[in-house]
Every structure is written in structure tokens, then in C-alpha cells.
């Protein structure tokens, strides 16, 4: 009995710094953000004086009637979908090829993973140079390349284009390409780690039974890697929602907000306009979106564990 109490005390003692830290810096601040999103802190005076007038859902009404927020939300959704599809496709393809251990696979593995080690700020700056369209007479970046190889017709405005189909803005393509470039290597590494754990005999057996490469992939590898693919999707999705740095550095919010995302709008609302309550409301919408993605995953893995 005594030994058990002691053990309990030790475990509580060891856990408490984390619990207190998380309690204050995560849940405490989430609660604070919820509180701020329901009061009247849309100017600095109220914030500094601590005047807290409850305004209900007014701040949410402000942001949901803002065209910039709605555009940004749709942009973010499209960005998320294409970014995940692109990173998974490229990442999985690369990992399957590398898993056959071709010559020099070790080097390629590192080359593909390398972009992940760079911060979005650096990626954003470089891709901004690459995709900067220049003008008709003085093209830059890719447009200059296209001109030099005689493909002038393929030149377009990249991230400055204001065209689109329905709610999808073509300008996003440039940002999506940059993000995929950065994270497909990461997806590859995750998949590769999983592939290495699949017993060789299994594949061998399938081969003997006459399965084609595609059948091995779609009937054996992909189903066995379901958990890893799901983890990758969750990780990539939350990166997409927090792609603030990439967008902020690479394109800004763009002409008519074609490359805006709520994270950038939140930053500018809060720290440039000093509209703290509107900013808190945007932050909460983002939190809910991340929650929608992550909570089912957590529930799922929790059930599997128990």
C-alpha cells in the first residue's frame, strides 16, 4: 500500500510540469482566445484598459461577412486538398521506387528529404523568385525559361494571376507546387519507414503467385500502410492550415486575395489592425478546422489502443 502511494506520488510529480505547462499555455490560452473572441477588443484602448464588453457572436459575424475571409477559407481548402494529394502521390511513388534499392538510393533518399529541413521562409523566398512572372518584354523566373526555350505561349501570371474556375484561384497553383516540393520528401520518408517493415517474404509470395507490380502495390503495400498514410494526411492537413509563413513570404495575400489564407488574415487583423477580437475569432475558426481533422484520428487511434 505504502509503496503504491509512493509510486503514485512520483508519477504525479513527474507528470505535473507537463500538465501545468499544457494547461496554461495550450488550454488556458485557448480559453482566453475564446473569451477574447466574444468581447469588444477591436481597438487598442479597450484592450489596454481591460474593458471587456460581451458582444456575443458579433466578431464572428464580422469575419464571416468579410469577403477576404471567405476567399481565404476557400483558398485554404483547395490548398489543403491539392497539397495532400500532390505530396502523397509524389511521396509514395518515390518511396516505392527507392524501396527497390536502386543504385544510389541512399543519396536520392536524402536529396528528396532535404527540402523538409529548410524553413518555409526560405522556400517561399526562392519560389517567389522562380514564379515571379515579370512583364511581357522582361520576363523573369520560369517565364524567362519558357521564353528562352521557345514556349512563349505557356507564359502566364503564376501567383499574380486573378483567373480561376469557380472558387479555385489559379494563382494558388504556384503556392501548392512550392508546398508539395517541400513536403513530398517527408511523406516519402514516412512511407519508406513503413515499407521497410513489410516482410520480404510477403512480396515474394505475391510475385510467385503472379501478381503484377501494380497489384502488389494496390493490394498489399497500400492497405498495409493505411495507418501511415492516415498519419501523413493528418500531418499534411494541419501544415496546410498553418502555411502562414509560406504564403506570407512567397506571395502575400495577392491581388483580390487570390492567395490569401485565414492564417495570414488573422495575423494582419490582430497585429496590424489591432482588431484583437476579430483576430481571435479567425484563430478559433482555424482551431475548429484543425479539430475536425484531428479529433476523429485521435478517437480512432484511442479505440485501437484500448
Amino acid at each position: 500500500m505504502k509503496y503504491k502511494t509512493k509510486e503514485k506520488l512520483i508519477s504525479v510529480g513527474l507528470l505535473s510540469p507537463t500538465i501545468i505547462g499544457l494547461g496554461i499555455f495550450v488550454y488556458g490560452f485557448i480559453w482566453r482566445t475564446i473569451r477574447i473572441s466574444t468581447i469588444d477588443w477591436n481597438n487598442i484602448t479597450n484592450m489596454l484598459r481591460g474593458i471587456e464588453n460581451f458582444v456575443g457572436l458579433d466578431n464572428f459575424r464580422n469575419i464571416f461577412t468579410s469577403t477576404r475571409f471567405i476567399t481565404g477559407l476557400w483558398n485554404n481548402i483547395f490548398f489543403l486538398i491539392f497539397f495532400i494529394i500532390g505530396s502523397l502521390t509524389i511521396g509514395i511513388t518515390l518511396s516505392v521506387f527507392l524501396n527497390d534499392k536502386p543504385k544510389g538510393h541512399f543519396i536520392f533518399q536524402n536529396i528528396y528529404l532535404f527540402p523538409m529541413a529548410i524553413s518555409f521562409v526560405v522556400t517561399g523566398t526562392v519560389w517567389r523568385w522562380i514564379f515571379a512572372p515579370g512583364t511581357e518584354d522582361f520576363p523573369r523566373g520560369i517565364n524567362l525559361l519558357l521564353t528562352n526555350i521557345g514556349l512563349e505561349n505557356l507564359r502566364w501570371g503564376w501567383f499574380t494571376s486573378t483567373e480561376g474556375i469557380g472558387l479555385f484561384n489559379f494563382a494558388l497553383i504556384a503556392v501548392i507546387v512550392a508546398a508539395i516540393w517541400q513536403f513530398s520528401g517527408y511523406t516519402m520518408a514516412m512511407w519508406l519507414a513503413g515499407l521497410r517493415g513489410i516482410p520480404e517474404q510477403l512480396i515474394e509470395a505475391a510475385r510467385i503467385d503472379g501478381a503484377s507490380k501494380w497489384q502488389i502495390f494496390s493490394k498489399i503495400l497500400f492497405p498495409m500502410q493505411k495507418a501511415i498514410t492516415l498519419s501523413a494526411v493528418i500531418l499534411l492537413a494541419h501544415i496546410a492550415l498553418k502555411a502562414f509563413d509560406l504564403v506570407y513570404v512567397m506571395t502575400g495575400s495577392g491581388p483580390r486575395n487570390v492567395t490569401d489564407i485565414p492564417a495570414v488574415f488573422m495575423f494582419e487583423t490582430t497585429f496590424r489592425s489591432n482588431r484583437y477580437s476579430d483576430g481571435a475569432a479567425i484563430a478559433l475558426v482555424l482551431l475548429v478546422l484543425v479539430g475536425v481533422l484531428i479529433i476523429p484520428y485521435l478517437v480512432h487511434s484511442f479505440r485501437e489502443d484500448s
Binding site: N43, S253, P255, R256, N257, E268, R272, R275
Partner: peptide
């Protein structure tokens, strides 16, 4: 003008440049 107005003007003029 206050910074909040400045940034809403920025947004309005940004849209104007395109629309």
C-alpha cells in the same frame, strides 16, 4: 487614420486594382 482603417483601405484598394 487608425491602423484598423488603414488596413481595411488597403484591402479595398487591393480589390479595386483588380476589379
Amino acid at each position: 487614420a487608425p491602423e484598423a482603417l488603414m488596413s481595411s483601405f488597403e484591402d479595398v484598394i487591393n480589390e479595386f486594382i483588380t476589379d
